[in-house]
Computed example of a mutant assay.
Amino acid sequence: MPHIVAAAVSAGLPGKVPVADYEACPVTHAVRMLGDKWTLLVLMLLAERAHRFNELHRRVDGISQRMLTRTLRTLEDDGLVVRTVFPTIPPGVEYGLTARGRELLVPLSALADWVVRDSAA
Rank of each mutant, 00 (worst) to 15 (best):
V116A: 09
H3D: 12
N54R: 12
I89D: 11
V60S: 06
I4V: 15
V82Q: 04
S119I: 08
G35F: 03
V85Y: 01
I63A: 00
E94V: 09
G35T: 03
G62T: 01
D36W: 02
E76Y: 01
V81P: 00
T98I: 03
V19T: 14
G15M: 08
I63G: 03
V17L: 14
D78R: 11
W38E: 05
W38R: 00
A121L: 10
V9A: 12
A99S: 14
E103Y: 08
T69F: 06
E23Y: 07
P26I: 04
W38Q: 01
G79T: 02
D36E: 14
G35A: 06
L41N: 12
R83G: 02
G62C: 03
M44N: 15
T69A: 09
R32C: 12
I63Q: 00
G96Q: 04
E23F: 12
K16E: 15
L45W: 07
A24C: 08
Y22R: 13
D113T: 08
E103R: 09
V27G: 10
R102W: 05
D21H: 10
P87A: 08
T39D: 00
A7P: 00
V85I: 12
G12E: 02
V5Q: 04
V9F: 07
L97W: 01
K16S: 15
R58E: 14
D113E: 11
R66P: 00
V81W: 05
E76Q: 09
W38N: 05
A6M: 12
P91S: 09
A6Y: 08
